[in-house]
Design a protein around this nucleic acid. Sequence first.
DNA 1: CCCTTGACTATCT
DNA 2: GAGATAGCCAAGG
Length: 118
Amino acid sequence: MSNFREKFDPAVWRIVKQIPAGSVLSYGQVAALAGYPRHSRQVAQALRRSEEPLPWHRVIKTNFNLASGPDAHLYKEQMARLKAEGVVFDNGRIVAERSREESDSEALDRLLWGPEPD
DNA sequence: CCCTTGACTATCT
DNA sequence: GAGATAGCCAAGG
């Protein structure tokens, strides 16, 4: 079996599980935080293969759109879950400022969104 | 070993 | 803002 996946998958899951409710991360950020920069596509595979329930809906694209197409089954589910956590959508697109305000994890927030959230 | 896929990202038109 | 293009990298055929 691939040794890479054996290390990569758990690393990704660990990061995703730390995302506070109401906040979101991009695939690239998750990959980088897991210790594997430029592995955004592998993150997607890791999430899909995960056997334990992960907050996968908090992982989106860098442009604040959902990853899967509007027709995909995952799309509707992801939006519903995010809305339930207080995330505001504008025509299918996430309003980032709102998501940040809902987050109360200051340390992780700085790590993810920058040292000066001002 | 070569080619295609993919829940991606960045840049240019 | 929407398309096209290039870069990216593991997995599977």
